[in-house]
Design a protein around this nucleic acid. Structure first.
Lengths: 253, 253
DNA sequence: CGCAGCCTTGAACAGGCTCAATGGGTGTGG
DNA sequence: CCACACCCATTGAGCCTGTTCAAGGCTGCG
């Protein structure tokens, strides 16, 4: 294990207190409830910034439910290039990539201090037997990951660079609002290079895209900070994405 | 249902005969065995070319195990553009995309006459309870889809056009050999436009990529047919992909 | 035979990449 | 407190890959 502190099994009452922010849509918290009610043994781990929850090549022993923080899922190729595949927040699972082969194929790294609930995969399978809601939970989470990857993929090589960045922001806003967090001012946890890597473009292009979004009054940066984004009108942002999606279909009657 | 003929539940002994080609690696046939041995009720459907196994928006009732034929999984956007997300062959599952929301988000279309084993999703969940191997089967299949999408995604916006086409071919060859089919001469089931769509490029670029691969003696077309590809040396093909993957890392000592 | 799809090839264009210079913010040490 | 270094971000100029537009060829089918 490569967490900061050794996880120990603690009472579910206690971990229930170790929650994230106050207001959130029910389905974000649902997995926590299900695990608690089903009495599945959970170990809570704090993960410090930059630490790995797991790394490619390690045997899959646990699945991890993100309780707080932001985690990036990435692969690194033999020649050292990295690729950020996804960002995961509270309520998302980490580790499904390892189920097929019994071994992880990605790294999961915290990009801010966070906390995960780790559940032994075999314990989860066992619990699934007499707790259908646990089985359903995992299925839905995996299905979600499959369907989600779909349209992020779709977006990625359909949209031009500017719109791709805009969509990234819009998606981030969705994630936050879905978890009951403020969406007017957001703090990017990633450098331009990392964003670019995630979106399949260079850091310069990301920078230019941001500049363009500012010029078009779709976003604004907080005075002097390149990471503090203010989005006055989420709809405007979304419109920006859509306008780029259908280059001239709009002019066709 | 939008198959050609109405599916009817038949004995497992009978469907066992309705197999695909002769020799195949064990894990391709494994899911069929597991379903049969667990006594999960299966309906076998013939799917004619161009027919849909399911379409986006339909309620998820069944998962479908491909017994034969090639199926494309695609999404179509509101404005009518399509995107081919994946191709599925014998042993692959169709329908996981619908688990999260209970509704399919993709279309699954046969691109050649084929056959699927349809299993009610709830029956599968039920069977999972006292048949852990069924649960494991589904988990592994979903995990596989998650991990697989990962690196197809990775490849897609990392590689230049030529290499992308080469990788597509190599992947296709792998799929075939993995299922015990001949790999020296393959028949593309897709038009240049569809391949391009799948790989995120235009049909002209696909065509040029093929021409280049021919010029470099990595592949050859059967006299007068643009769809019959002869691959004399699979390793050469793979080398072509890798050489493009690491543009100058090879020259760095 | 003639038409319709599909494929190939060429030429001009464009979006994003590379290379390169500049600037601001932060942190460290004098 | 200032100076310097380092990292990150911005911006510009030129290039290159893949797109777009356009013309033609091949195959199969009515």
């Amino acid at each position: 294990m490569n967490y900061t502190d050794s996880g120990k099994t603690i009472s579910h009452r206690a971990v229930a207190l170790a929650r994230g922010p106050a207001v959130a849509e029910p389905d974000v918290d649902a997995p926590f409830e299900v695990l608690r009610e089903a009495g599945v043994p959970v170990r809570v781990h704090a993960v410090r910034e930059g630490a790995a929850v797991f790394r490619a090549g390690e045997r899959l022993s646990d699945l991890h439910l993100v309780a707080s923080g932001v985690h990036k899922v990435m692969v690194v190729t033999r020649d050292g290039r990295e690729k950020v595949l996804a960002l995961r927040l509270r309520g998302d699972w980490l580790g499904f990539d390892g189920i097929a082969e019994g071994r992880h194929v990605c790294d999961a790294i915290a990009i801010e201090p966070g906390e995960v609930w780790s559940v032994r995969y075999d314990a989860l399978l066992e619990a699934s037997v007499d707790r259908p809601e646990v089985a359903a939970l995992i299925h839905r989470a995996m299905g979600h990951e499959i369907a989600g990857d779909r349209d992020s993929m779709m977006a990625l090589y359909t949209l031009p660079a500017d719109a791709r960045v805009a969509k990234f922001l819009a998606g981030w806003l969705d994630s936050l609002s879905h978890r009951g967090m403020h969406t007017d001012r957001i703090t990017l946890k990633l450098t331009r290079a990392e964003i670019g890597n995630h979106l399949g473009m260079t850091l310069e292009t990301v920078s230019r895209a941001f500049s363009r979004l500012v010029r078009e009054n779709v976003i604004r940066f907080v005075e002097g900070h390149h990471r503090e984004v203010h989005v006055p009108d989420v709809e405007a942002l979304r419109r920006f994405v859509h306008s780029a999606m259908v280059p001239e279909a709009a002019t066709v009657h």
